[in-house]
């Protein structure tokens, strides 16, 4: 069966209006090969609301993250940062609102696994690695490949894959620890291992929840360099409290407060914002 020919004109420019464009491509179309992000946004959140027994953790939030952007999300405790990540990764379903990955993937209708396979990687606040496995195995499992049961039963590592794992091991500075059990690593090393696993996944969008917590200054600096290198090829969304770190990486900052976007712009802009000062410093 051949698909009906599409007029070349439509293919180049589906529609001016974003909403209609999605309609034309197909709502909730899952797992397209390669991400369709022709409109330049990798993540589109509109009117997202999450309420827990009446309490609104996120309240009518709009957020757009562009392709290749490195976005920092800051905000006081309880601003809804982690809940936001839960919504994007499918762990929590929004009570209301739209969440699009690229132009075609409706995140609210996909399972966590589908979302991960579609190309969103997540790093938890507390580093979670597979403690009983070696560092190498951890990276191997994260590698972007066929992850079905049958594939795993007969999987063998190709030289190319081995090379990729070695490369990432080098990037995160854990070559020496490749054969050690991940559980025996230090806190900072676990953080790097988890970042390494994200790299192996090769996602379009990386969500990083407090990636430099528990790292030394040198490690933090190194991480900042790493993230800046990643941006451009990947899109990153970083939740962080460490303002120094935010200042060293972000070109664009979003401030969340009580589930809403309080301010957006460069770090200097938001730091000068009256409301942000009020929220952070109190009256």
């Amino acid at each position: 069966m051949r698909p009906a020919p599409i007029h070349p004109h439509c293919m180049l420019e589906p529609s001016i209006d974003a909403g209609q464009g999605r309609e034309a491509i197909g709502l909730g179309h899952v797992a397209a090969p390669g991400l369709d992000a022709r409109h330049g946004t990798v993540l589109t959140l509109e009117d997202i609301t999450v309420s827990f027994d009446g309490f609104k953790a996120i309240d009518a939030l709009d957020l757009y993250i562009g392709v290749g952007e490195l976005r920092c999300i800051i905000g006081p405790n309880g601003a809804g940062k982690t809940t936001l990540m839960d919504v994007i990764t499918g762990k929590t379903r929004p009570t209301r609102g739209k969440a699009w990955f690229g132009d075609t993937l409706d995140l609210t209708r996909m399972s966590e696994v589908q979302i991960a396979q579609a190309g969103i990687g997540r790093k938890f606040q507390k580093p979670t690695v597979f403690e009983a496995l070696t560092v190498f195995d951890n990276l191997e499992l994260a590698h972007k490949t066929d992850k079905s049961v049958w594939a795993c039963l007969g999987a063998r590592l190709s030289d190319e894959q081995r090379g990729r794992i070695d490369e990432v091991l080098g990037t995160i500075g854990l070559q020496a620890a490749r054969g050690r059990a991940a559980g025996s690593l230090s806190h900072g090393q676990k953080q790097f291992l988890e970042i390494g696993m994200l790299l192996m996944q090769d996602p379009q969008l990386l969500l990083l929840d407090e990636p430099v917590a528990g790292m030394t200054d040198a490690e933090t600096e190194f991480t900042a360099e790493l993230f800046k290198r990643l941006a451009g090829k990947h899109s990153l969304m970083v939740v962080e409290h460490d303002m120094g770190f935010v200042g060293s990486i972000a070109d664009h900052v979003t401030v969340l407060h009580q589930g809403r976007v309080l301010a957006e712009g460069s770090l200097q802009q938001v730091q000068a914002d009256e409301r942000v000062i009020e929220v952070y410093l109190g009256r």
């Binding site: 990764t89 399972s111 966590e112 696994v113 991960a116 396979q117 990687g121 997540r122 938890f124 979670t128 690695v129 597979f130 403690e131 009983a132 496995l133 195995d137 191997e140 499992l141 994260a142 972007k144 992850k147 079905s148 049961v149 795993c152 039963l153 007969g154 999987a155 696993m197 996944q201």
Partner: peptide
């Protein structure tokens, strides 16, 4: 010995992490 076995071990220790790695 297989990758399957390693996935199982991973599943036992950190099921959430495994899901976010893209395994069902």
């Amino acid at each position: 010995q297989s990758k399957f076995g390693r996935v199982l071990t991973a599943l036992r220790d950190a099921e959430n992490r495994l899901m976010f790695c893209g395994y069902d």
